[in-house]
Design a protein around this nucleic acid. Structure first.
Lengths: 287, 287
DNA sequence: ACGAAAAGTGAAAATAATTTGCATCGCAAT
DNA sequence: ATTGCGATGCAAATTATTTTCACTTTTCGT
């Protein structure tokens, strides 16, 4: 658990003086990481001991421990508090894109529901056949990626981005199959229809989507991905990166279930394949 | 420029005592961020003043400034120094994957050659027609992504993952066209052939690949992506994430060249499209 | 090879930052 | 009204950091 999360969680229960300190952290973070306890206390209009107590309350040993922890998580964790730079300068564009991507990963990590992911991995590993659904450039890529990752593990899988096809596949699926759907917004009505159809036929379903959304409700196992809206609309790439990482996690867990003992051996085999090919994208083989 | 980079850069020029401090930072980083100057000095067998001077030398105000900066970059920047966790526990798998992904982005950011990217963006924006080449699951995805991103900006573009096709397209390309190829390893011999063919016909070429590699040499503009090998082989996803971010950067810069004034307007239009559709993956439209 | 200048280093003193102990204040419950 | 508790700041104590200065080693020109 990082401090920033703790801070948000404790925020309500803080005293008057302490919330003033919290405000400074949230608003003028740059100042906060660089300030001494005296400067910080001064700006918050409290005494240094209050700052020390504040730090302890948030689970730190001391003020300097606090600063280190703050600096640590903040590198990626607090970027989204910043307004958009809006500059068209390459340096800024690059920085902005990388920040957003790292931040999306950070938020993904925080919002991960490991229990749900494990359940999903269990189901996938045991499935007779897997159908991966996703539409639109983004989610269809994720569906394709699922296929790409899981077929290598020996799973039987196909993917579809076509709504009509999804319905037919869902109708044809058997009870030991699994349908896994992806939707960034969670509001893909057609996907909801396919999942509902599957549910009626008692075919297990998994959704990678925003928690609490229609798509999430329609699936047996909802693996939540909750990223702030801002991220989605203007920078779809960063959301996509988070989804890719999620698929990576899921596929790794499925791999451990399918080939529990194979980790070490696999790596050795991979290395061989990799060394002898010497073509492009050697890692494809080695994945 | 972050401290870790500065440290690696200055490493050679450090004095005996100073290198001992550097070693501790590199080897027992956890200790270093949490230690007081006295503890750190003790472990390195030097006096506290030497530590202070060491910090100054690396461009910091003071020891505490140094610690903050260190903690900051280290959050993602030094993860790759850690050995693999090897645990199959979901928490560890997730943490590992997210770390690697963030780290790949961090390294990408550090190795970005903005000048090359700008040149590439200039060329692309001015091209009569763009051909995006990439083979293997990874690079072909990148080629597809380039097409996906650039056609929306009004560019004429097609992509191909087929070597034979790439050769034919390269042979058919005109001098005001652009060929852009992606190769993670830089050792895709077929891609090199296509790029060479294009060069002979004076068709401008761009490569997204490892610097100094055959593919990089074969292209007019090489946009380097240098990630440590370890990242590639076992976790292709993280490398792919870095490439996706790079495409994102490149596409954004092309957008500014093609529609220099449109940024603000575009966003407003996007928002409209987005609000009225309410389907899945609204961001697709809005991208 | 010699010696002067420069750079590197640590001990101790000086300074600054942080924490502790304690007293006070304000508020809520009795 | 009064007791008790948590919140707070002051001042002292502690601790951490930096500066100063003297000493040592290295470097470089002669």
């Amino acid at each position: 658990m990082d401090i920033f999360a703790t801070l948000l969680q404790e925020k309500e229960r803080l005293s008057q003086s302490e919330s003033r300190i919290a405000d400074i952290l949230l608003n003028d973070f740059e100042f906060a990481v660089n300030a001494s306890i005296i400067e910080l206390a001064g700006k918050a209009d409290v005494s240094p001991p209050t700052v020390t107590r504040f730090c302890r309350r948030l689970g730190c040993e001391s003020f300097s421990d606090f600063k280190v922890q703050l600096a640590r998580t903040a590198y990626v964790g607090m970027r989204y508090l910043k307004p958009e730079p809006k500059s068209q300068e390459p340096v800024d564009v690059a920085r902005d894109i990388i920040d957003k991507a790292q931040n999306a990963l950070f938020l993904l990590h925080r919002s991960l529901d490991l229990a749900a992911i494990e359940q999903a991995a269990d189901r996938l590993a045991a499935a007779g056949m897997v159908y991966a659904f996703g539409s639109g450039g983004n989610s269809s890529m994720i569906a394709g990626e699922l296929q790409n990752r899981l077929f290598r593990l020996g799973l039987r899988i196909t993917s579809s981005s076509d709504h009509g096809m999804q319905l037919m596949l869902a109708a044809a699926a058997k009870q030991d199959d699994v349908i896994i759907g992806s939707s960034f917004s969670g509001r893909n009505a057609e996907l909801v229809r396919a999942l509902t159809l599957a549910r009626e036929a008692k075919v297990p379903t998994i959704a990678l989507t925003q928690s609490g959304s229609p798509v999430a409700e329609a699936a047996d196992i909802a693996v939540p991905v909750d990223l702030p809206e801002g991220n989605n609309i203007y920078r779809p790439t960063s959301t996509r990166i988070a989804y890719l990482a999620l698929v990576d996690i899921l596929a790794s867990l499925v791999a451990y279930r399918v080939q529990p003992q194979a980790t070490a051996t696999l790596r050795r085999i991979k290395q061989q394949l990799v060394v002898h090919r010497d073509g492009d994208d050697r890692q494809l083989l080695g994945d």
